[in-house]
Write a protein that binds this DNA or RNA. Structure first.
Lengths: 238, 238
DNA sequence: CGTGCCTTTGATTGCTATCAAAGAACGTGG
DNA sequence: CCACGTTCTTTGATAGCAATCAAAGGCACG
């Protein structure tokens, strides 16, 4: 599981494909970026960067999960973004990091120096355009999460979370009804603005209703995705 | 109050200045954008666009307040972004709008056709760079809001909101301790993930503690900004 | 095979939503 | 300019959901 997949041949998320389309456009994909790219395995709880660090790299998760988070002075934590394999971290920050970031499980990460990215943006308008689209997708999913945190109940949050991960897994070409969430209850709680106990109770409720099964604590099998969607409180369709 | 200020000479927010810096760089600021710009006054509750509309314009608030929101099928509403004077709306969406947007009070709006913006991005790498920075600022403030919605209590949310508006007003060169929030309790509730009653009760509490005064319901005077900051549950400083 | 961490479950508390109604502000038309 | 109706805000009483407190059970790792 913790082997580094080949990121070029891996199934590509939306973000990945928009990124690489631009490389294709240049017809020299590796010229600016590849020479100084490297891959690194981060241990669980290892930090990729802290708030206030000057930005040296942008990251792509190859395997594992990375979380961006903020902490209040009394220790309350909110994870503002989860990055699953194929997804990028810390795009659109080209000065100082303004968040903390850690590997939520043992993770293999591709690290790209920011200087190369900056150079490409300044010389290739289409590259900047692609990055803008990626930032805009990130903004959209963050706003979606705002709706979840602001207006959904605990059971709705859990159902929305499972559907969210299911969709990300599907983009990678894997089974959307059987996946490993890779992170523990505490991290889910901090992503959804709940406590560990509430997360656990709602997993139990879904399990007892046979909507999901959990062969192990982080392995999820969705038995009834329609009921999961009902529970998740979908958005108004105009 | 509802007169259109001259947006060129108006005090500029961060967003505005990064936008216009690029215009300066081109040395022909109005060539691409200005001819088809127009200003329009929107009535309270008038919609700028709906989810699914194809994107025709980006907007800059000149006077008033504009809110981007999402609605669940049972009517629960979450405002994901508020735009005060000088701020832009709907940046980083260049296909379909993915949210609904309405004027939360009578507002004067500058409307810019998207085609002109797209043209500039494709021909001028630095323009795309500026837009990316703006999108990144929007992302940062959305993540800040995620922390507020996920982890703060009602009193902390209200205090954070008042400080947020105070800072925006200060950017415009106005008194940060005396301003008009322009929106009603219901809109604040939908921005903070609370109910109208809870918002009202917490305004009352701040008023009774003499931390703020409210000459009228939407006029705020901050008497003790330090205590307001304490109540707002500031972030951990690393 | 024990130790520690994570998860689950139970009991209780407390915060915010909900329900209800009075009071204030605003806009409109007489 | 005032009277009236509407909308918004405030306040009170109660209910309910999720947090907190507490402890047992399960799993992984050394």
């Amino acid at each position: 599981m913790y082997m580094s997949p080949d990121y070029i041949s891996a199934p590509q998320s939306l973000l990945v494909s928009s990124f690489f389309n631009i490389s294709d456009y240049k017809k020299s994909p590796s010229e600016n970026l590849a020479p100084r790219d490297y891959k690194r395995v981060y241990a669980k709880h290892e930090q990729l960067f802290f708030e206030g660090d000057s930005e040296t790299h942008i990251f792509q998760v190859l395997d594992g999960v990375v979380g961006i988070y903020k902490i209040l002075s009394d220790g309350r934590r909110q994870i503002v973004s989860l990055s699953y394999p194929g997804e990028f971290v810390s795009l659109g920050q080209f000065d100082k990091y303004t968040y903390n970031c850690e590997a939520l499980c043992k993770s293999c990460i591709r690290c790209m120096p920011v200087s190369a990215v900056e150079k490409m943006i300044k010389t290739d308008p289409c590259f900047g355009w692609a990055l803008l689209n990626m930032a805009s997708l990130e903004l959209a999913s963050t706003r979606e999460q705002l709706l979840t945190l602001g207006r959904k109940t605990a059971p709705e949050k859990i159902a929305s979370f499972l559907l969210d991960i299911s969709r990300r897994v599907q983009v990678l070409g894997q089974d959307p009804n059987r996946f490993n969430i890779l992170i523990n209850r505490g991290d889910i709680a901090d992503y959804l603005g709940l406590t560990i106990e509430t997360v656990s109770r709602n997993f139990t409720k879904l399990r007892k209703a046979e909507i999901i099964a959990t062969p192990s604590t982080s392995q999820i099998v969705i038995n009834d995705i329609e009921r999961l969607k009902q529970i998740s409180a979908e958005e108004m369709a105009f």
